[in-house]
Design a protein around this nucleic acid. Sequence first.
RNA 1: UGCCCGAUAGUAUAAUGGUAGUACGACAGAUUUUGGUUCUGUUUGUCUUGGUUCGAAUCCAGGUCGGGCAACCA
Length: 555
Amino acid sequence: MSEEKSLNFLEEIIEADLASGKTKTVHTRFPPEPNGYLHLGHAKSICLNFGLGDTYKGKTNLRFDDTNPVTEDTEYVDSIKEDIKWLGFDWEEEHYASDYFDQLYAFAMKLIEKGLAYVDDLSAEEIAATKGTPTEPGKESPYRNRNIEENTRLFQEMRDGKYKDGEKVLRAKIDLTSHNMHMRDPIMYRIKHTSHHRTGSKWCIYPMYDFAHGQSDSIEHISHSICTLEFEVHRPLYNWYIEQLGIHPSRQFEFARLNLTYTVMSKRKLLQLVQEKIVDGWDDPRMPTLSGIRRRGFTPAAVRNFCERIGVQRRENVIDVGLLEFFVREDLNKSALRRMVVLDPIKLVITNYPEGKSEMLKSENNPELEDNGGYRDLPFSRELWIEAEDFMEVPAKKWFRLAPGMKVRLKSAYIVECKDFKKDANGKVTEVHCEYIPESKSGQDTSGINVKGTIHWIDAHQSSEAEVRLYDRLFNTEDPSSEEGDFKSYINPNSLEIIPHAKIEASLLDAKIGEHFQFIRKGYFTLDSKYSTSGKLVFNRTVTLKDTWSKEVKK
RNA sequence: UGCCCGAUAGUAUAAUGGUAGUACGACAGAUUUUGGUUCUGUUUGUCUUGGUUCGAAUCCAGGUCGGGCAACCA
């Protein structure tokens, strides 16, 4: 394969399998359960599975692991498909574990006939109680030695709806003394008189994960069934079913799931945040869900690059969310159009600029692109909006923005020198008075003056407004799941700041959903797909720019 | 006090018995009409104790630490 790029452990396994002939075609699958939205952890798995299929010119299926009708829904099926496509992947075949229910039922019958499965009348509590603990062996159920005829009849009756939920289960007959809890006569089928999102009321018995997943892999001739580490202890069972059934030997391999700092990555916890309305739905821009980060403005390329960079291993890891943000900035820096937006406006009056005069100035769209991505016109006149934080009454050390007596460049316009300022009754600065240097016009500067600072601005009389939403990390501790007590007590109360009336330049009025902008000196932004309307634009901050000044301040 | 898995800079990830490298971060500097970008440099690491070997991050053994396993969830 590749000489320069080293292989991850799965690629090594695959190449060895290919070389030995154990595997002829690499066939992977991404097997989500449609009971929640996909998150960045799934993105790692998606990139891995589809990536391997791609690298080795094999195939990758999408298979919904829909064996529990109680929690599953087509709403999730649709969102999952949308998210995978958004990430840039396409599946070879689309399957559902529920498509295999007939086959799975036949498999179960086969095990009964081989004397390897039995119907158990014990309750859930009794089964748990007789299962033992990791240090004590389990005890056999009194129903364990029913004969094949009785088991066959009973299982058929289970299927035919003769029993209530929980009244009976089908169990594999393996070993109650096994060190592996999953081998202590695991449940294969349980009764649920619940309608299924695809099979409707056809079935009232549903297979457990262990009795569905491996066989589904086998039916699809999956060569490398890749899952996360917590399924490692399931592998002997995975293999046992395949072996006893004598079906295509798919093999399972496990990798460490992705953890990210300052967030949670479990569907259960994310669901809680949604249900308790701590966030605005699964696609809240603060959520690590793919729909959330998409709404936030993250790009598929950034996520893919991130997944490639973090690699795949078997050791537990917590990745710095800053790494993801790096890839988002890297991608957006190349493409996002530069625009000027003032989030916290104060007025700047150019006292020596004629009243009533206005001129048009041009500003580059993106210095990273050829020809600066073209130019747009910006109106400029005597009164402008500037960012309140760009003025300091008493300048800090190393400060090179506005302060009395200091000069600064107005981006794409003139150099101005601060002469005065006004404060309101509360002592808040409301106006900054400057004089401009006419010869310093951007692009034709003959003033010979060099200034260190450049700030953004908007013409005060020709500006528009928009709502801007600034997001911060959802939790204020690196690993909320490992902290004491309820993870929700570590929620960052300031994770969303809404700025109702930011001053925006006119070109932004044409912004479309899915476009990315860099608000100069402020960060990357995108239109909010949920709340933005043509009458009222709402921008989400995707990520801030790197900010070396704020680090300087902290010193 | 059982079974399974894991351990390389702050965080990740390479080195597959032969010079411990890369990315992000941090720090310092250059460039810059974004305190952005770009560029240069610096810093920090093989969990521990033994063993095998000319040579060990790598192989072996003991220990330590971390994670997983007792849902009619996946």
